[in-house]
Design a protein around this nucleic acid. Structure first.
Lengths: 106, 106
DNA sequence: ACAGTCGTTAACGCTTTCATTAACTATTGC
DNA sequence: GCAATAGTTAATGAAAGCGTTAACGACTGT
């Protein structure tokens, strides 16, 4: 997923809570709705956003196909980490050139 | 700054662009407006959000107090990294307990 | 077949967010 | 003092986001 969808998805507090809950263990849609104190329709749309952002994955349970189990998809978060790392890299360059600037003036 | 303000601030593409631009070198408000292709008032409000989120810092130039120079404030991003790291930690616990589960069944 | 459960989709309203234009403050140079 | 420049604030409008209730589709157990 692109970085924009990733940041937008994680901008919502409820969705971040869902991500953290799923970091502990996979959960059903209804469980997540209860845990986050949101209605089922609201949670359904949050989960769709997280799915589309690549942060979570879903799976129907074979013993009861009504149940939809969601789990965290850590690969979906690499885009976030990459964004931070790139920024850090440029920041380090900036620091290095400033050091050179100081060196040249002493 | 709290995590919510941080994620909200970075949810906007223009603001992320500003952060990346400032990762390379400090810039004036007007420069940022031009570089991002936004009007001065729009950029002014974006910069206020980033300031309040702790991601950037500002400084008036002493030779011309009209000019406001913004620079990146890398400490403001640790909250983001911390959030990811905590999630990663819990994810690892989840993996570990799953390993134990498998061990117990073989 | 039918009632109950799980979850999604539709329709609606409210609130927030973002951009624009116009007006204003502060500072500089002549 | 006056015109020009840098930037912010105010007012307005359009679009997106989120929540709710109601209706719907899919599956299960009896």
């Amino acid at each position: 997923m692109n970085v924009d969808g990733l940041f937008s998805a994680l901008a919502d507090p409820t969705r971040r809570q869902v991500v953290q809950l799923l970091g502990r263990r996979p959960m059903r849609a209804g469980e997540l709705a209860d845990a986050a104190g949101r209605s089922a329709p609201a949670m359904s749309r949050h989960l769709r956003v997280l799915l589309h952002a690549g942060v979570v994955a879903d799976e129907r349970r074979q013993e009861d196909a009504r149940l939809r189990v969601f789990r965290l998809r850590p690969e979906g978060l690499v885009g976030l980490q990459t964004w931070i790392d790139q920024l850090q890299a440029h920041w380090n360059e900036q620091l290095a050139s400033f050091q050179l600037h100081v060196e040249g003036h002493k």
